[in-house]
């Protein structure tokens, strides 16, 4: 029962992007297309689950004074793994994500979960938390990427949705850097609006 709670927690109640506003840099940078968002989500989720597993397993062995450097080394090891595997088997995706693959190391979500959850919870619930947070992160990226790809390119996951006429003259700004900032601002505003509505009704 509580495993399911740990899992769902990251998807909705403590969604890393929309609730905690953590991990913004890769979130804004790779959401130019749904394909990139899914690739980044999968890579981050793998690192998140593995680091949560290892940190939780070693939580009684790591002295608390040097725990942060230990976590960073654990995370960096898994990121290096992802980097090499992706470079070998998915070279196009690896090129599209560019420096944001090594930068998974400094994604605040992963270190935040190691420090805030995995180091004081048993292995199974840490893995569940990693999966939940990973899904929450991926879901948030897919939401923004869907809007940006649809407005900026007229497609969704490379499938043409809005037709030739739109694709020839799309709202290009959605795919450029400003579009990411402005759309994220409005999405966060929308969540606040929902929250205020709910509070007002009570």
């Amino acid at each position: 029962m509580s495993l399911a709670k740990d899992l769902v927690n990251g998807i909705f109640r403590e969604n890393p992007i929309f609730r905690l506003t953590l991990g913004m840099c890769p979130f804004l940078a790779v959401t130019t297309s749904v394909r990139n968002a899914l690739g980044m989500g999968a890579a981050a989720m793998f690192v998140l689950v593995c680091s949560n597993f290892l940190v939780s397993l070693l939580r009684n062995a790591i002295p608390s004074k040097v725990r942060i450097p230990c976590y960073i080394v654990i995370i960096a090891t898994f990121v290096t793994l992802v980097d090499m595997v992706m470079n070998a088997y998915l070279p196009d995706l690896h090129r599209a994500l560019g420096i944001f693959i090594p930068l998974i190391v400094v994604n605040c979500i992963i270190l935040g979960r190691a420090e805030g959850f995995a180091n004081r919870n048993p292995v199974l619930s840490s893995v569940a938390d990693g999966i939940g947070m990973g899904i929450g992160f991926t879901l948030a990226m897919v939401v923004l990427a869907s809007i940006r790809e649809l407005l900026g390119n007229g497609t969704w996951l490379d499938i043409n949705i809005l037709g030739e006429a739109y694709t020839n003259q799309p709202l290009l700004i959605a795919i450029l850097a400003p579009g990411a900032f402005i759309l994220l601002g409005f999405i966060l505003g929308f969540f606040n609006l929902m929250e205020n509505r709910k509070r007002g009704r009570r």
Partner: peptide, 18 residues
Amino acid sequence: PSLEGKPIAFIIAGTMSI
């Protein structure tokens, strides 16, 4: 009121980015 804080900060960042 729902844009106060972070949402408006991101929107300003977007206009600066333009």
